[in-house]
Write a protein that binds this DNA or RNA. Sequence first.
DNA 1: CGTAAATCGTTCATATCGTGAATGATTTAC
DNA 2: GTAAATCATTCACGATATGAACGATTTACG
Lengths: 152, 152
Amino acid sequence: MIGMSDVKGTPLFATAAFRLGTVGTVVADRFAGRIAEHDLKPKHVGLLAALTTAPVASQLDLARLMGVAPSLLVRLADHLEDLGAVERVRDPGDRRRQALRLTDRGHDLLATCAEISRSLDRELLAGLSGAERAALRTGLGAVAGNLDLPFD
Amino acid sequence: MIGMSDVKGTPLFATAAFRLGTVGTVVADRFAGRIAEHDLKPKHVGLLAALTTAPVASQLDLARLMGVAPSLLVRLADHLEDLGAVERVRDPGDRRRQALRLTDRGHDLLATCAEISRSLDRELLAGLSGAERAALRTGLGAVAGNLDLPFD
DNA sequence: CGTAAATCGTTCATATCGTGAATGATTTAC
DNA sequence: GTAAATCATTCACGATATGAACGATTTACG
């Protein structure tokens, strides 16, 4: 009976890949709508968040971490600098490198985004038990690990 | 002691919103990479998939279902028509309406995408027990429901 | 040493994607 | 039977991400 299960295979709608892709996209869009009033886009928040795990990092390292082109990271950093959320500091040991540093305002903005995320969670997770929420969270964490995403 | 829990709140990285947004985005990107050789983008697959639940539907209905502008749906349908995956058929009862119908080739393409999704699942879910996978799937289904996404 | 190659940040041109406004054909309301 | 609404479509536009080119700096190595 080897291979008896999955003869037809999981239907497309039921795959984790399909559900993650569709649900993730609309969640990201909704998140984008809420942070727009703070002049932020999801990638800006991703950059701010990356700076909390790697307090100071070169722009190129950050670009690789986020999986975006270096030229894009420049513009993200420019915008965050305009907002006063990050500062560029030349690495004295290697003057090519621009390290990004979170300012107090950057921390504040990040705290605001965290509150928005929690508020979004209340809507997304409505009707789920505590155990179900925990299972979803750890499941997402495991998938993130398989994708080499830098989560805690 | 009202409000004692969540004094600091769930950290941003641990929120479902943040994890869904980030993980979902990279999963969607990876999926996009795999279907590219078939001349498809995620939205094309979404349209094909929508046609399996509503076998024939007007383009405007489909646009609303997918949450995209009607003008975009025209271009998605154009491309799928070029690929021979869908046919436009005028509704005889209301000749303004163009109904989209999946062709055999469309069904084939969708089956290919389903196989790609299952293959992606094997990577995303590596290391998760059967129970964990099931919990993740139902959790995603529940979130999809809270977002009014049309899943089974 | 000193020159060649690599690295980092930046700018720029370009491709792509999604939207909203305008248009034409058809249908519905009154 | 005329006016308003609906559907599909085209078009111009904004926004986003990329890769190529460039200047400044650093590293490798004859």
